[in-house]
Computed example of a mutant assay.
Amino acid sequence: MLAVIILAAGKGTRMKSPLPKVLHLLAGEPLIIHVLETALNLNPQKILVVVGHKAHLVREKVKAYAVELVPQKEQLGTGHAVLICQEALKDFSGAVLVLCGDVPLLSPETLKGLLSLHFREKATVTLLTAELDDPTGYGRIIRDGTGEVVKIVEEKDASSREKEVREVNAGTYVFDKDFLFRALPQLSPENVQKEYYLTDVIALAQRAGKKVVAFKTPFKEEILGINSQRELAQVENLFQQRLRAKFMAEGVSFLQPETVYLERRVRLAPGVVIYPMVSLRGKTFLAEGVVVESHCDLKDVSVGPGSKIRAGSILEGLVIPPATVWPK
C-alpha cells in the first residue's frame, strides 16, 4: 500500500513572483502538475497535496485530479507539513512517499527504484540521494564509517567539513507510516531557520535502531529543485532537450533543434519536419509527414498527414485537413 504526500505550500520568495512557486510553468504546465502526474504513475491509494500560500490558486489547478488538499496555515517547515497529514492518513497503513512540488524532473522509473529498495530492504526510511559537482544549497548526506546514513545536515546548519560532502538529499523519501507519525512530534526547531525539518526523522530512526537506506540515482538532473527564475530557466532548458531527444528518436526532424519550443502535451508523428524558430503549444498534434516552416506558433492545432504550414503562421484551435498547404 502506498500514499503520496506532495509538499506545495511554499511561497517561493526567491522567485520574486506573485504566483505560488508550484504554479510556475514548465513546458506549458504548472510544476505541481508534472509532479502529480509522475505520482499517478505509481498507482498510489491516496495522494495528499499540502497547500499554503495562495492555496485557492493551487486548488484550481489540481481540481481535475483525485487528490486531497491539506492546508498548512503556518509554514513551519517540512516536518510540520507532513505532520498535518496525519489525520488524512489515519485509516491508511503502508508506505508514505514524500515529494516536493517544485522538483518536476523526477521520473516514475527513479521513484519505482526508490520504492523497490524500500520494500526489498524492509526499511523504515528510504531516501533519494545524488552526487553533485556543486552541492551548494542542498542538505548533505552524512554517513558513518560503514557507509550507513546517519543524518542529513541542511546547508545552513552544516560545518565547513560537512559542506565538502557532495552526496546530497533530493528531498524525496519513503517512510513507514506508523514510525513517521510517531517520530514527527519529537522534532524540534533547534536550527538556523527555526523550522521543523523532516530530515531530522532520519537521525531519530537511527537512534531508534530502525533501518535507514539510501537510493543514489545516477540521473542527478532529476533531483533539481526550483527556487529562482534562473533555476526555472535551467530546468526548462533540460526539459526541452528531453522532449526534442524523445521526438528525434521517434523519427521527427528538427532542422535547428535548440530553436524549437515544445509543450508537454504536444504529439508529433514520425516524418514530421520542423524548421527553426517554431513554437508548438497546448495539445497540438502533427501527423506523419507534416512540415512546419520557420517562425510559426501553433497552439491546440491538429494537422493532417502530408500538410505544410507556411512560414510565419500563428494558429490556434484549428483542424487542418491532410495534404493541405496552410494558409491556402
Score class of each variant (00 low, 15 high):
R230K: 14
V165C: 06
L180C: 08
T284V: 05
P30N: 06
T124R: 05
C85G: 10
I47K: 00
L204W: 11
A123H: 01
K211G: 14
K112V: 11
K246Y: 11
Y197F: 15
V58F: 14
T126M: 11
G137M: 02
E288F: 15
N43L: 14
I141G: 05
G101D: 01
V98K: 00
L224H: 00
V62D: 03
M248V: 12
G317S: 08
E167P: 04
E236R: 08
S313D: 14
G12C: 01
G145W: 12
A3E: 03
T129W: 01
C100A: 01
I320E: 03
G317R: 03
I226L: 08
G113I: 06
V260Q: 08
E258D: 15
G209S: 13
V149H: 04
S302W: 12
V67K: 02
Q75E: 04
V290T: 13
F239D: 01
L318I: 02
K163H: 12
P270H: 07
K328V: 14
E222Q: 10
I5P: 03
K308A: 04
V149R: 07
H118S: 06
N191H: 09
R244F: 07
K216C: 08
A311F: 04
F219Q: 15
P276G: 02
V301L: 01
L286F: 10
D91C: 12
Q206K: 15
L298C: 05
D134Q: 05
L132I: 09
A208C: 15
V273N: 04
F219W: 14
L315M: 03
E195Q: 12
V301I: 08
H56S: 15
P30Q: 04
L298Y: 08
A170E: 00
E162C: 10
A55Q: 15
